[in-house]
């Protein structure tokens, strides 16, 4: 118990963190600079796009503030386009040089429907119960958006 506490204390002390950073291969400071945001970078989030994204992700941006947050997130992510990746193979995963583990075709799991069904809120005869299948979302008036059709 006391060991854990000590370690936690160490972590919290700035000196220890700095010690770790100096050992790290991650540069202390960025080696390239983000261009200041320009007008051109500004992506246009249209009400149609908001609607599309809300449907895809089944989220609700709720209000003007939420939409602005989305806008700035998009702008932030768009900066990645400034990184020169010419001639560089995309990296899917840092594990991509590892061999993919191949499993023999043997049955070693399953038969645990009781445990799984316990986690469900609603169950009927060993089936999970879900709301009826994809119902098109009603075309709602996004009252938090400024005039429909206009960019934000």
């Amino acid at each position: 118990m006391w060991v854990q506490k000590t370690i936690a204390k160490c972590w919290r002390t700035a000196g220890f963190t700095r010690f770790l950073s100096s050992q790290s291969k991650v540069p202390q400071n960025p080696t390239w600079r983000i261009e200041p945001e320009t007008e051109a970078q500004d992506s246009h989030v249209t009400p149609e796009l908001i609607d599309h994204l809300e449907r895809l992700a089944l989220v609700d941006f709720r209000n003007q503030e939420g939409v602005q947050r989305l806008q700035s997130a998009v702008n932030f992510a768009n900066q990645l386009h400034h990184v020169n990746t010419d001639g560089i193979e995309p990296l899917d995963s840092v594990l991509e040089d590892r061999a993919l583990y191949i499993r023999g075709d043997e049955v070693t799991s399953g038969n645990c429907s009781e445990i799984l069904l316990q986690k469900a809120k609603s169950v009927v005869e060993d089936y999970f119960v879900a709301p009826p299948g994809n119902i098109p979302l009603p075309q709602k008036e996004n009252e938090y958006l400024s005039t429909k059709g206009e960019d934000i």
Binding site: N111, S113, Y127
Partner: peptide, 14 residues
Amino acid sequence: SSQVKFAAPPNSTV
């Protein structure tokens, strides 16, 4: 590694 079985009871091979 759960079983592939035709007409198994619901959620039994999960």
